[in-house]
């Protein structure tokens, strides 16, 4: 038993280091070289999309830095939730208990908010959470690219949720799903007004859902870059580095909180679709 454990443990350690080396090499080899730069503000340059190989046009299938960092998110996910849990231990290893923590966190969220019948959609919600969390956290590496800073990405995520939830609502409840907009606890006079407000707020959901995520992450990254530009000026650099450190700590929090907020809102929308009459 213990021999098998130590064997799989050493395998895991080797796999972990191999992944780390591959990731490091991928970052270094495909990244842009550090140039000599003076005081230059390029806070938006980090969000540019460039092809990984060559300098050609970007068509829909060109491998770009988007591909690279999304691929690294997948690798990180595999590392944590597949390689980390390969021991299937009753008493978990450190990696396994982090994976179980993540699983339990989202599972409990879905169960608490969307109810028992929402648990069926747990893998979809876990996919969303994993993607956003790993994108945000990997995006905090220096010289990285963060897919979730782009409205194109977050809008697709939000529209996926919106479409899924709306279709599910009508499939599960039929026309009574429209009861979501008809507030039966309000006085009869107010109900049409409230219905209009509810309808507008329903269609604004994907907008706020996507812009909240992209806006938060983008703003944080831009702020770090602005402070970083000041670090080139000798007299400003201590203040600048202190500010970067502080903002970086905040960004670490924001990276998690935005993934959490996106996921919990998805759960709330799912609950509305499953139980429109509260």
């Amino acid at each position: 038993m213990t021999e098998a454990n130590s064997k799989s443990g050493s395998f895991g350690r080797i796999a972990f280091w191999v992944i780390l080396v591959v990731v490091g090499l991928a970052i270094v080899l495909t990244g842009k070289p550090l140039g000599e730069e003076g005081l230059a503000f390029h806070p938006m340059a980090q969000f540019e999309i460039t092809p990984l190989f060559g300098d050609g046009d970007i068509s829909w299938y060109t491998p770009t830095n988007v591909t690279k960092w999304m691929g690294l998110s997948v690798l990180a996910l595999v590392g944590l939730l597949v390689i980390g849990t390969r021991g299937r231990a009753i008493v978990p290893s450190r990696m396994q208990s982090v994976g179980e923590l993540m699983y339990g966190f989202i599972y409990k969220m879905v169960e608490d908010i969307a109810g028992k019948d929402g648990v069926k959609y747990f893998p979809y919600i876990m996919t969303l959470f994993s993607f956003i969390l790993f994108s945000n956290v990997l995006g905090l590496l220096p010289m990285s690219y963060t897919p979730t800073t782009h409205i194109a990405v977050t809008a697709v995520l939000a529209m996926l949720v919106f479409t899924f939830v709306t279709v599910l609502g009508f499939v599960k409840n039929g026309a009574s799903f429209l009861g979501l907009f008809w507030v039966s606890s309000a006085p009869m006079v107010l109900r049409p007004v409230l219905a209009i407000i509810e309808l507008i707020s329903y269609f604004v959901r994907p907008v706020s859902h996507s812009i909240r995520l992209a806006g938060n992450i983008m703003a944080g990254h831009a702020v770090v870059k602005v402070f970083a530009a000041f670090a080139a000026v000798t007299i400003m650099s201590p203040l600048s580095i202190a500010a970067i450190t502080a903002v970086y700590g905040l960004e670490l929090l924001v990276a998690f909180i935005q993934a959490y907020v996106f996921t919990i809102l998805t759960c709330v929308y799912l609950k509305d679709a499953l139980h429109p009459n509260h």
Binding site: I49, T127, P147
Partner: peptide, 22 residues
């Protein structure tokens, strides 16, 4: 380009999670 790679990534993540990890 972004949307294509996003959908590919989500597909792979969903496969890994739903088939193996979860």
């Amino acid at each position: 380009n972004q949307i294509f790679w996003l959908l590919v990534t989500l597909g792979v993540m969903y496969f890994v999670l739903a088939r193996i990890a979860l």
